[in-house]
Design a protein around this nucleic acid. Structure first.
Lengths: 104, 104
DNA sequence: TTATTATATGAAAATATTATCATATATTTG
DNA sequence: CAAATATATGATAATATTTTCATATAATAA
């Protein structure tokens, strides 16, 4: 067994964690949310819904999911819940993809 | 409508393409394949199966899927099909995720 | 030519993700 | 307190992805 193959086994858990985060990002709506919050941090659910022309409940589900995975954070002010990027590093994923010359 | 919001609409297609590539990568087995090929380029299907302790048909499906999306390339030599990275840029996605402090 | 080996393929089953809908909760306002 | 507004929740439906299994194909060897 080569060193590389041994490595793969050791890193199995690492790949599972990485895939978990990547999955949270690998969706057009969620990428749009990330870019939106990158440009204008701390938007309410309604503002995000309007920007993305998407339904409140669906956006809420996405936001909560991304918060759960540590990508977003939120803070409440009165009736509104303001979401912002917790992990700015994820914006680099988009930049990274844009440099790819994959079949698109 | 703010400039950011106008942007989101224009970029809808961009997000779809990016999500398409991210989805191809957002899977533990496929991440493992990428790292394996990054370290030792041009492995046969069987070698990959052994390294990942995974079934031939399943690995074949993953490999063909990643090739279809422009991430891998393959070349045949006799009975063997050797796969390698076509788009090395995707290895940066893994590095990028590792720098994240998301809830994992 | 038959057997063997490596890989691909395709259908079906299993599982996971995403979207929709109705409604609940919480906050503010009149 | 009742009405209005913003967001969350949870069940279900719709859809997509992943796995499995049986088998096909193609190359080589006996």
């Amino acid at each position: 067994m080569t060193a590389e193959i041994a490595n793969i086994k050791i890193n199995k858990e690492k790949f599972e964690k990485a895939a978990y985060i990547l999955k949270a990002v690998a969706h057009p709506t969620r990428l749009a949310i990330i870019q939106l919050l990158e440009q204008e941090d701390g938007l309410s659910v309604n503002e995000i819904c309007e920007a993305l022309e998407s339904e409140q409940s669906l956006i809420s589900h996405h936001l909560i999911n991304m918060k759960l995975r540590g990508i977003l954070k939120s803070n409440k002010d009165g009736l509104n819940m303001y979401y912002s990027l917790k992990e700015h590093e994820v914006t680099k994923l988009l930049a990274c993809i844009e440099n790819c010359n994959c079949n698109m």
